[in-house]
Design a binder for these strands. Structure first.
Length: 578
DNA sequence: GCCGTTTTCGGCCCGACTGTTTTCAGTCG
């Protein structure tokens, strides 16, 4: 089973949300939010910690440690139950709408009697918002837009949440006697950025015990269907998981079939038909006599059709079938190719772990190099100063001299409204590299946003363009910029474009990676880690890069440090200012 | 509620933007 940290963090965050909505002391709610982030980012499973161990977590004191212990012991929290009684569930739901915070959500609930997002939309459409203090026409419009953004993601969960659920299910099923193989297929195996439901595939000669174990998982909320070879459940948190059990002999054909995508499978089946075969989840069959040609592994199924085995992230009918037929599939970048991370944070800004701890985590991963890029000073809440940044650099140089990965001192600059960044050239020159990202003024007109991003690329000290679209999946749409112009500028100036691995970002998204590659840009697959555990998000960035057909050579953090440094210096020299 | 080269109380994440106001509350990063 997975770590208890995520459940505990969710509990603390909900507690903070409830305190906010009930008008609790703001510093108190902030402490619970901070503790939630610290618990989520803590390396040790909190379920294994005693009271003393819990209090070692930054931001966790006596009271919160007690609450965590109570939650782990009883599965719920008495204080939370009390708060929940005071708050209609609908109010928390309303606060999920962007631009609608706790205060106004409570107000809408009290004044309009709305208790859900649907009711709120109906009320706005019926004009019931008019005349209510603080809500004009513009506010109504923004709320409706927020609801739209929210609902576009409805029913889909982030790749990370789906992966965690799938790992749990597969781990249990692999332990069931008679289970010969078990893995997940579907869009999750293809690393789609969000997943509608999880498809789990198992091989066994006797499916019964697997079906029983599956439908009796502790995390199952509801059994939607239970049959001889196929069952569906809904887990806590509303994620649907389907299990199919097949004979071992059909494993490869079934895995191919259930991995999809549908358009990819249609193309592959067309090839089968033209060659006189029929392809189904049971195998590849000769049409004339119905004899089985291949089914045991995916590799042999593809091979018998005259195709290279197609890595799942490519199976979207974007030209991979033609490439596989010509033997021209790219050698995709993989986790083994990655030598370092170029975008990470510490507790000097909004990370939860000190520099030494982050560096130790990087060393444990066997990285050859590791960049620390805390937020620059134009983000007021971080209260960054030149002195703090220079002090961190001294500490980092000292850590570096003790061995381990080569440590690069960087920063995450803020790209201002006109494309300017936080510091003058002479200060920027002191960094080994700089990530630059948009953190404000998201709604500028397209031309302005485009110019702004292009100008950032033209800055010789901007090494990496961080999370370029700044979208938050299900929460904030991508910037309305002309990304072809931006990517062309990145290619022209030698600016590396980030693939941010954070599960709610995955930015660049795969379609833009494909376009960027055509422009000739180089990429960095970064984690943007704010805690040691976030370094593991790398796999989502890798999967996204694979969906963009990237090879190791396209990705600068697969390069040796010398080549990377030369690349940084080349840009600084080439676009050096007078 | 947490924390302390500020130390057992009194601070704590600050500033800008937005939409609504006529002086500011709410939200966000």
């Amino acid at each position: 089973m997975g770590r208890a940290n995520d459940a505990v963090a969710a509990m603390l965050q909900e507690y903070a949300d409830l305190l906010t909505v009930t008008g609790g002391e703001q510093f108190k709610t902030r402490v619970y939010e901070k503790a939630a982030r610290a618990v989520a980012g803590h390396q040790v499973d909190v379920a294994t910690l005693d009271a003393g161990g819990l209090r070692q977590i930054p931001g966790v004191g006596a009271s919160i440690a007690d609450k965590i212990a109570e939650y782990l012991h009883n599965g719920h929290l008495a204080a939370m139950d009390t708060l929940r009684e005071q708050v209609s569930g609908g109010v928390l739901e309303l606060t999920r709408i962007p631009t609608l915070g706790p205060k106004r959500a409570v107000q809408l609930h009290d004044e309009l009697g709305v208790d859900s997002i649907d009711e709120l939309r109906d009320a706005i459409v019926a004009g019931k918002l008019e005349g209510h203090r603080g809500f004009g026409a513009r506010a109504a419009e923004n709320i409706l837009h927020g609801i739209e953004v929210l609902e576009r993601s409805h029913g889909r969960v982030l790749l990370s949440a789906a992966t965690a659920a799938a790992e749990q299910v597969v781990e249990v099923l692999r332990g069931v006697p008679g289970c010969l193989r078990c893995t997940w297929a579907g869009s999750l195996r293809r690393f789609r950025e969000t997943v509608g439901d999880v498809d789990v595939l198992a091989a066994a000669s006797e499916p019964g015990p697997l079906m029983d174990a599956f439908t009796r998982l502790p995390s199952v909320d509801d059994v939607l269907a239970k049959g001889a070879t196929k069952s569906s459940v809904r887990l806590q948190g509303d994620l649907q998981v389907d299990l199919r059990v097949v004979p071992l002999a059909s494993w490869g054909a079934a895995l191919q079939y259930f991995t999809g995508s549908k358009p990819h499978n249609v193309r592959v089946r067309e090839i089968a038909v033209r060659a006189g075969f029929k392809l189904s989840e049971y195998g590849l069959f000769r049409v004339e006599d119905g004899s089985l040609v291949a089914s045991e592994t995916e590799e042999v199924v593809y091979e018998r059709l005259g195709l290279q085995w197609v890595p799942p992230p490519l199976r979207e009918d974007r030209g991979e079938v033609e490439a596989a037929r010509e033997g021209a599939l790219p050698a995709l970048v993989s986790a083994a190719d990655i030598r370092g991370d170029l975008h990470t944070h510490t507790d000097l800004t909004d990370g939860v772990a000190p520099l030494a701890e982050m560096v130790a985590a990087a060393r444990a991963r066997g990285y050859e190099y590791y960049a620390v890029t805390d937020h620059a000073k134009n983000m007021p809440m971080q209260r960054m100063t030149d002195e703090k940044m220079l002090a961190q650099r001294r500490e980092l140089r000292e850590l570096a001299s003790a061995g381990g990965p080569v440590l690069l001192h960087g920063t995450e600059l803020n790209i201002g409204p006109d494309g300017e960044v936080d510091w003058p050239d002479e200060f920027l020159r002191g960094f080994d590299l700089c990530v630059a990202s948009v953190h404000s003024h998201f709604t500028q007109p397209a031309e302005q946003l485009t110019r702004r991003l292009v100008r950032a690329c033209e800055n010789p000290y901007v090494t990496v363009l961080g999370h370029p679209t700044t979208r938050l999946i299900g929460k904030r749409p991508p910037l309305d910029a002309d990304f072809d112009a931006v990517l062309a500028a990145a290619a022209r100036t030698g600016t590396i474009v980030e693939i941010n691995s954070f599960p709610d970002r995955l930015d660049l998204p795969d379609e833009l990676i494909l376009r960027a590659k055509r422009h000739g840009v180089r990429f960095a697959i970064d984690t943007d880690a704010h805690a040691p555990v976030h370094l593991d998000h790398l796999r989502y960035g890798i999967g996204t890069a694979q969906r963009g057909w990237l090879t190791a050579d396209d990705v600068v953090n697969t390069w040796p440090i010398e080549r990377l440094r030369a690349c940084i210096e080349t840009k600084r020299a080439a676009v050096a200012r007078p």
